[in-house]
Design a protein around this nucleic acid. Sequence first.
DNA 1: CGGTCTGTCAACCATTTGGTTAGATGCCAT
DNA 2: ATGGCATCTAACCAAATGGTTGACAGACCG
Lengths: 233, 233
Amino acid sequence: MSERHPEADPAATSGGLVSGPDGAEAERTETEERIFEAALRVFARKGRDGARMQEIADEAAINKAMLHYYFRSKDRLYAQVFHYVFHRFDRAFFEAVERAGEDSFAAALESFVDHYIDFIGHHLDVLKLMVNEFLDGGAVIRHEVTAMIATGQAPPQRFARLIARAVEAGEIAPVDPRHFLVTLVSGCLFPLIAFPMVSTLIPEAVDDYEGFLEARKKNLLDVLRRGIEPRSG
Amino acid sequence: MSERHPEADPAATSGGLVSGPDGAEAERTETEERIFEAALRVFARKGRDGARMQEIADEAAINKAMLHYYFRSKDRLYAQVFHYVFHRFDRAFFEAVERAGEDSFAAALESFVDHYIDFIGHHLDVLKLMVNEFLDGGAVIRHEVTAMIATGQAPPQRFARLIARAVEAGEIAPVDPRHFLVTLVSGCLFPLIAFPMVSTLIPEAVDDYEGFLEARKKNLLDVLRRGIEPRSG
DNA sequence: CGGTCTGTCAACCATTTGGTTAGATGCCAT
DNA sequence: ATGGCATCTAACCAAATGGTTGACAGACCG
């Protein structure tokens, strides 16, 4: 059961992108699909400006003209890919929180860490593209986030409220909900981004990626759970 | 005392790069210096391939030919900048650990978080360029790290041993030193990278960046210190 | 069978990009 | 002054890059 870190074989970190024909969007050609996934991969590692159309075409094993046939321009292609990624990123968080609607906060926390690390750990390109956008100033992100918050359903805010309630109920120590959330998410995501560095400290992670993910979950949970236990003194 | 997040004014996140004429390297022209810092800024946000020589020249407010006059090619310029950044990144960690040579582990931890967040928080470009390299696969990083580890002085390993000793001494709960270190560093660095996202959750961070850094230190330390307190029962 | 519509491709085009060069400018020792 | 040297610049060049086009192949339909 020891799978290597995805960097080894390509295409492994984009994950199944478009679920079946759920009628929402016009069905995509297989070619269109291939382009989209290849674009995600290349944009994720090279960034918007660093990515080359030819490289995307090569990665998708199709003619470069097809990129423009289906997506008109590099900007439009990037926009579509990023928009998709943002919502995937958002949804991952949302679902992790939803399933975390457990009875105790401790259980919710455990469920969140489990689902979040699982999803992002297997869709690394989604995270990478997101981070790429951070590095470039995140103008697009702020735009998308603003739109998201406007819906009143912004998952991070919801989770922060969940934490706040646990504090009020005395279920956990009085932490700042927003900062605790930031620390939590940091502990989930950063090790995945910084894998090239982390793996020099934890070499086994390269040959047993799944094991690494599980170890991260366990160790992060151990520290955080203890870190917010209410004081009975 | 409320300074805005560095994204606002340029040049603020590279920090003073080359310290005075300490004789180590041949002294640099003021122009050379300007190029170097501009290159760091542009590479940090656009990545190796995304960066344009013209953009670097513009940022440094000098003629593009000067880039080649002083650094021959884009590759060489990038190599020099990255090499510098890597060691700066490494040194920041090292110094944070050194100063953390306190009596108690708790004090050491506090000192580390304080210095590390301070330094990286004010040299964001160093971190950003590093992360850019992560996203692209980190081949260069692995190379540098291997060289670093060969010296036997690799700071991360040293800090991991420090943690291990604290565990053995019963000073802290029995955590996995390497994973605790990863969680610690994640909590320090990720919020700085993901600032565009974090600041939608913590809007004050934009107008009071220094305050944000202090809040991060405090909240991270609170959770981690409690998280590793030894159990007395 | 002829027409046409979609998908595909090789070749092509205009612009951008990394990199070069010939010559200016200023400084400093002779 | 003047010759030499480092620094700097505008103009230039070849290659790479985003994007286009015209032709071709096959499915579908009358």
